[in-house]
Amino acid sequence: MTGWLALLGTAAGDLNARATERDRDAGWLCAWRGEDRPHASALRVDERLLANDGPACRISLVLLHENARPIADDPACIQARRAVLRDGRPGAVSVLTGDPVHLAGAITVARADRPEELLALRDDPFLRLGPGRLLDIGPGLLGSAPISLGPVVERYAGTPWPYDRW
């Protein structure tokens, strides 16, 4: 099963949560499960992050412009993943992919009631790849998934790391 994620102006997903940035409306974070791309803006995400009963959380969302997306196995991407494995603080993390070759971004999730996770968002390693936003997300969309410490490369082309099954 594949997960999909998009930040949109309307609640268009199977799961939706209001997004705010510094208390200002930032739209809706929308998610879907399924193999086919549900929306033109949707990017693949490790499906384990999606949770209907997930709590309110804060995310670091890095979305790279289509013309500035590095190859998924670029050393800069691998070093960002290694930094995540080394520090290991977030409640959940996944890279975002839009095609089988490039890295389209990353999402790092901190549960709103976990100060150590919130603190870690300030040093999101994926921010070294491009600009990011800190967003507060309402409940019912994102859960926690302790990161599986293993390979820093994707299993299959386009499968969002850290998904770790063949």
């Binding site: 603080r89 302790p146 293993g150 390979p151 770790d164 099954r165 063949w166």
Partner: peptide
């Protein structure tokens, strides 16, 4: 528990590798 205190199972950590 792992070094962060999360309960982990060996088969889950193996992850097919």
């Amino acid at each position: 528990p792992d070094h962060m205190g999360n309960p982990r199972r060996l088969s889950e950590l193996a992850g097919g590798d």
